[in-house]
Structures are given as structure tokens and as C-alpha cells.
Amino acid sequence: MKGEAELKVVNLRKWFPVRRGIVSTLLSRKTEYVKAVDGVSFEVRKGEVFGLAGESGCGKTTTGKTVLRLLEPTGGEIYFEGRDITALNKAEMKQMRRKMQIIYQDPYQSLNPRMTVFDIISEPINVHRLSDSPAETEEIVHKSLEDVELIPAEDFVFRFPHELSGGQRQRVAVARTIILQPSFIVADEPISMLDVSIRAGILKVMLQTKEAQDITYIFITHDLAYARHICHRGAIMYLGKIVELASMDNLVNNPLHPYTIALMMAVPVPDPTLGKARAVISGEVPTPINPPSGCRFHPRCSKATDICSRQEPELVEVSGGHFVACHHAH
């Protein structure tokens, strides 16, 4: 049913310890952490495409991997279909993984170069023992190749990844993911390595199977123009925090957080008659090891006042479904 939460994340944290030299270890200085994800909460509704957007290093990929427990969370809860999956043991998690899948960014690295397309796509079936006979496996593999429009399937099953183009590889990666009929997929920048002319084709097969199998997606991207056309709702991240969460329409047309506003203004538009993209903020994203106090964006923010450096703003709902974490946005 639409509107129901497929995934609910509460105060998710993922900290990576910083490797130290032997001297500081001996002097037992305090361990430092890269706070890649630092207290993130959101809900993904059943059947929607939820965008996670932000600049590199904002924690969007770490969030995506952590909600699947491909990275163990440092803290927080992850509810998938109502169950807290952080409490599951390995065997239970394996069962769960059938329903929760990921598509990686780079199809040149995510496919084993020594395996044929058939082996790559059938591996999940074997791992989860979903087929009773080799004939059935073959049938399922062919069907999924057809689903991603690698037709005729027999032309592709015995090829190796190096014999495929980038777009075809990413289609194989999609086929491998949807063959388990998951209900939830994290797509981590699935088109950013591909040429413009073939990107839409990959998105089309992803979204077609979404309709056919009722899949919920988290779509991780740095490209807001694509997010605009694919996602229903989305969250903008900055230094491990969500700064704004709303429908894609609201994020684009009515952004409230100064960072979201700056992002939207910086996106170039493929139309010379429209205004130019502008950089309304200077500088670059600081390191997440020692993020600024209070609001992490305050050193670059034109609206910043005293309170911004002292107190961290909460993500609060300012109107129906539009959340923003800023002391000055409401």
C-alpha cells in the first residue's frame, strides 16, 4: 500500500575511526572519527523513489550501505517492513537480504570479470536456493535478461563483462539485483558512469521493474537534475546530516535551507535562454572529522547568527511533509 513506510531510519549513525600513527596510539590520544553519517532519520514509503542527494563526502552512500547493513551502523535503528534489522543475526539477515538489494555505481568494478553473464545473474538464485533445477535457473536468468532489455538473452548469457558496453554491464547489474524480486533497492549513482544518451535507458528498465514488482527505491545521486525527474521525495545531506527533506517538487521549487537553495542555484541548466547557474556560497565542504559546531553549514551560510554556531538545529516539519533543519528557515 502506498504511503506506508517500507523503511524507517531513526537517528542512524556511522562513524569510521581514523587510522592513527604508532606515536599517537602509544600516547593514547583520543580516537578520532569520521562522522560520515551522524544522526539521520527518514522514512521511505512503499513504492516510492526516495532521493538521497548531496555533494561528495556528505554521507549519502554510507547511509545507503548502512541501511542495508552492508556497513554495520554505529548507532540508531533501521526498521524494514516494521522489523528492526539492526537486531537480526547473520542467518536472519541473509533471509532479509533477499528483499533488500543494491545496485552499485560502477559496472566496471561491480561485475566479476572472470564470470559469465549467466554465472553473475544466477549466483543470487543459487545463494538463496530459489531454483529447483538447472532448467528453472536458466529460465529465470533468461527472463531477467529480457526484463532489462538484453535481447535476445541467448546472445548475452555466455559473454564476459569485458565483452559488454558500459550500459549493457549496468543492465546486467540491474538484472542480478531484480532476479531475487526484492521489495527494496538502494541504487547508488547507477547512471553516473554512463553516457548521457544511454542513461535514460537504464533508468527506464529500473523503473519498469519497479512498477511490475512494486519495488521501493532509494536513489543516491549528486545530480539534482536527474533526481528531479526520477524521485518522488528526497533528502539533501550535508556533512552527515539531513538538512532538508521534502517532495522533489518542493525541494526544487521551494527550497528552504540555505544550503539547498545554494545547491539548486548552482545546477547548470541546458538552456542558454534561462539564467546562469550561480555559486551563491563560497568555499568547499569541510572535513567530517571535526565538523563545525552547531549547524554544520554555518561557516558558509549568509544567514548565520550566534545561535547557529552554538546549537544544532533539529529537522522539523514546517509544512505537510516538508522538513528542514535550520534556525532561520521557519
Binding site: 558496453s165 550500459g167 549493457q168 553516457d195 548521457v196 544518451s197 544511454i198 542513461r199 535514460a200 535507458g201 533508468l203 527506464k204 539534482l224 537534475a225 536527474y226 528531479r228 525527474h229 522533489m248 517538487d249 526544487v252 539548486m264 545546477v267 541548466v269 541546458p270 538552456d271 534561462l274
Partner: peptide, 24 residues
């Protein structure tokens, strides 16, 4: 023409993106 229509713009309303069939 195809390249321009394949290119999404943040300023337009949500639409289906169009790809060019085949590969370079």
C-alpha cells in the same frame, strides 16, 4: 536533437527521460 532531449533540466517539470537507442 536526441542529445538535447536526453538531457534533463532541473527547471522543467518531471518528465520521462528519453534515451537514444543503441550504443556509440
Amino acid at each position: 536533437q536526441a542529445l538535447i532531449s536526453a538531457f534533463p533540466s532541473i527547471k522543467e517539470d518531471r518528465r520521462e527521460l528519453i534515451s537514444i537507442s543503441g550504443v556509440p
